[in-house]
């Protein structure tokens, strides 16, 4: 029997493709350019990461990203963390875990409910880059989508 190689992301997207997006959720703005997690940094190294040219060019504009919603830090938080793969650790519950490098913090226009893990979401919002500390939680982020909205894919 041949060993079958499986990519986690492919399997997830594949298994969820059959789910139709609920009709009541508005589709993201058509014009917004797509930004992927691979697009975020131009270089990654021990002495730091460098934002990609694409991020610099799109800053201040509306962009669309796909990823997973990490469970909210606290119920009333004004933001959530968008991750490339579903969060398998809880950075605030466990002492020996940290967020991945390539997270994006999403500030919503209006309060929204959590989307189940294992579910890909599509988020649109205004791209912002550079370090910023959330005044309420002290959470430091490097990339943000402001005034955002999202829907399950």
């Amino acid at each position: 029997m041949t060993l079958i190689r499986i990519s986690r992301r492919d399997a997830l997207v594949g298994s969820l493709a059959a789910l139709a997006a609920p009709a009541f959720l508005a589709p993201p703005a058509l014009a917004a350019p797509m930004l992927t997690f691979d697009d975020l940094y131009g270089s990654v190294g021990v002495l730091g990461l460098a934002f990609s040219d694409k991020v610099k060019q799109l800053a201040g504009q509306e962009v669309t990203m796909r990823g997973f919603m990490a469970p909210p830090l606290k119920a009333e938080a004004a933001f959530f963390v968008l991750t490339e793969i579903p969060m398998s650790i809880c950075p605030f519950c466990s002492s020996d875990s940290d967020w991945p490098d390539n997270i994006v913090v999403v500030y919503l226009d209006a309060k929204q409910t959590f989307v189940q893990p294992n579910t890909v979401i599509e988020v649109s919002g205004t791209l912002e880059y550079g370090p910023w500390t959330d005044p309420e939680t002290g959470f430091v982020s490097l990339l943000r989508l402001r005034g955002a909205r999202f829907s399950a894919v």
Binding site: R8, A11, G14, P71, P86, S88, I89, F114, N118
Partner: peptide, 22 residues
């Protein structure tokens, strides 16, 4: 391996990425 992922109740559920491995 990423065996489980977290839901909004901070509970860990099986990571479905491996569900379809034969």
């Amino acid at each position: 391996f990423v065996p489980a992922v977290q839901n909004e109740k901070k509970e860990y559920v099986a990571n479905e990425a491996y569900k379809d491995v034969p």
